[in-house]
Every structure is written in structure tokens, then in C-alpha cells.
Write a protein that binds this DNA or RNA. Structure first.
Length: 265
DNA sequence: GGTATTTGACCGGG
DNA sequence: CCCGGTCAAATACC
């Protein structure tokens, strides 16, 4: 563990300590409803920050947290979509989704999304890819009842040429594609590693949460998103997230700073 | 041989 | 009938 890690560890402890102090304040002193809400939000924020920091220690850079793929695959422009299976990259092209509170290492969850189809959508610039959980059959679709599993709708905007050279790819999934997963509820899972990634997200990601209501709880354990054959590196992605564990408004507010990016919608 | 991806066919809803 | 989602055979990789 290097100095930076030690610093982050101390910061996480600091955040936890702050959360503990505020929690004690909440229990000891009488507060107005507004003050209580404020304290609760601060507590949640502190713990969220601590978890965020701790996760960044556990997660080897540059692995993204939501959807995982190899960096080389992520910015492989030569065959953006109609990529034939070559070499070892194929097995890394899985889309992994982590759930729970959104802070766990996705690799620990081990949910893989297996592509089962692709369609050219009329009027759409790019074909749409269809994915489902690899364990859907093995586990008899348990994810439907598993609160740790969530559906993601993934759109957004990232310019690969802006961040492709950096150590941390701003956002998965693998290829410079246009992604659209069938959305249900939305929720953000914080990027694990660095302020750099976070700033990149803020700079390049836009999240549309305006039209999610009709999708709530309507989607099976599969999703789709279109991909592009464009190699320009300028893409549009829109990310929707659903996590039953994050239905809580307060928790959503804690999570939201990373996804609610005014001015980019 | 096992597993994942590709891709055309099939099916259901609007 | 068109379109979107899924299936399943063929194929590729490990």
C-alpha cells in the first residue's frame, strides 16, 4: 500500500468518524425535522464517501465498477461491434453488473451478461445488442428475487478521444458503442477509483432520468443496448440504473451527486 | 469438449 | 405488415 492508499484509508476513517459523530448528535440532541434530515443526509454522505474510498483501495485500477471490460477492448475502434473472436479479449468482453448498495466490487458479485442477440433497429443509427445474465438458467433466474441484482439502462455521452488515453476508462462497457439497456429504476453506482474518473464522468456523462417511470419493474433479467460501428470515439450513452437497495430517497440523494449532472442533460 | 459470440429465423405485439 | 425481442444453429476461442 502506497502513500496515496494510506491517505485514502485515513480519509475513509475520517468520513466514518464524522458519520459516527453526527449519528451520536442525532440520537443525543433534539433536532428539528429539517436538522434531522440534514444530519441524516450528512451521515449517509459520510458513509458513502468512506465506502467509496475503501472500494477504491480494493479495486485495481482501471477497472470500472458497473460494467467491466478490458481497456484494450474498450477502445478498440477497428472493429467496434462486429468484432470477431480473436485472441483472449473475447472472454473479457463481458458486461458485469454489481448490485447491493452499489459500492461493492463488481468482481465480487460476478454477474456476467451474455450477449444473446443483436438487431438493427429501424431509425436507429446503431444496432442494438441483447444481453442476459449468464447465470439465468443455472440459478433458475433467481436474480428476479435478488435485491442485489438490478437492471441498468445505460445511455450517456462520452468522448473517448478525451479520455481514452488516460489510465482509467471513463465508463464501460467494452466498446465505443451506443448503449441502451431496458431501464427500470435507475441508480448510480459510484465509480470506484479516482477523482479523475469522477471528473471525467462529470465532464462527459449525462444521465437521463426523465422517462424511467414507465419502465419500473417491467424488465426481466436481460437488457439491450445498441452499439455503433462508428470509430469516431464520440458516442452517446445513456445510463439508467436500478437497484432495489437504493430505492430510499435519502440514499438516492447520496448516490446522486455522481450521476445527476446538471447542464449535461 | 465446454463455453461464449454471431447471426439469421422466428414470434408476438402494435 | 412492421418492428423489436428472443431463439438456436453455426462458429470461434480456450
Amino acid at each position: 500500500m502506497d502513500g496515496a492508499c494510506v491517505y485514502e484509508d485515513n480519509t475513509a476513517i475520517h468520513e466514518l468518524t464524522q458519520g459516527l459523530i453526527m449519528a451520536k448528535q442525532l440520537t443525543v440532541h433534539p433536532h428539528s425535522p429539517e436538522a434531522r434530515d440534514l444530519l441524516i443526509q450528512k451521515i449517509l454522505s459520510s458513509y458513502h464517501n468512506a465506502l467509496f474510498l475503501l472500494q477504491s483501495l480494493d479495486t485495481p485500477p482501471p477497472a470500472p465498477s458497473l460494467l467491466e471490460s478490458s481497456v484494450s477492448e474498450a477502445f478498440e475502434f477497428d472493429q467496434p461491434f462486429s468484432r470477431k473472436r480473436k485472441g483472449s479479449a473475447t472472454r473479457e468482453d463481458h458486461v458485469r453488473i454489481c448490485g447491493g448498495n452499489g459500492l461493492e466490487d463488481n468482481t465480487d458479485y460476478g454477474f456476467n451478461w451474455r450477449k444473446y442477440g443483436q438487431k438493427d433497429i429501424s431509425g436507429a443509427k446503431f444496432p442494438r445488442n441483447y444481453y442476459r445474465c449468464s447465470y439465468q438458467k443455472v440459478q433458475n433466474c433467481l436474480e428476479d428475487d435478488d435485491p442485489a441484482v438490478f437492471d441498468i439502462a445505460y445511455k450517456g455521452k462520452h468522448a473517448c478521444n478525451l479520455g481514452a488515453q488516460s489510465a482509467s476508462p471513463p465508463l464501460p462497457p467494452a466498446s465505443p458503442e451506443n448503449h441502451e439497456m431496458t431501464p427500470t429504476r435507475h441508480h448510480q453506482l459510484s465509480p470506484p477509483n479516482s477523482d479523475k474518473m469522477l471528473s471525467h464522468l462529470r465532464a462527459n456523462l449525462s444521465v437521463n432520468t426523465s422517462d424511467l417511470g414507465g419502465y419500473i419493474d417491467t424488465v426481466p433479467s436481460s437488457f439491450s443496448f445498441p452499439s455503433t460501428s462508428s470509430g469516431s470515439g464520440l458516442m452517446e450513452d445513456l445510463h439508467y440504473f436500478k437497484s432495489p437497495n437504493c430505492y430510499d430517497d435519502e440514499l438516492w440523494q447520496v448516490c446522486s451527486p455522481f450521476i445527476d449532472l446538471p447542464g449535461y442533460l
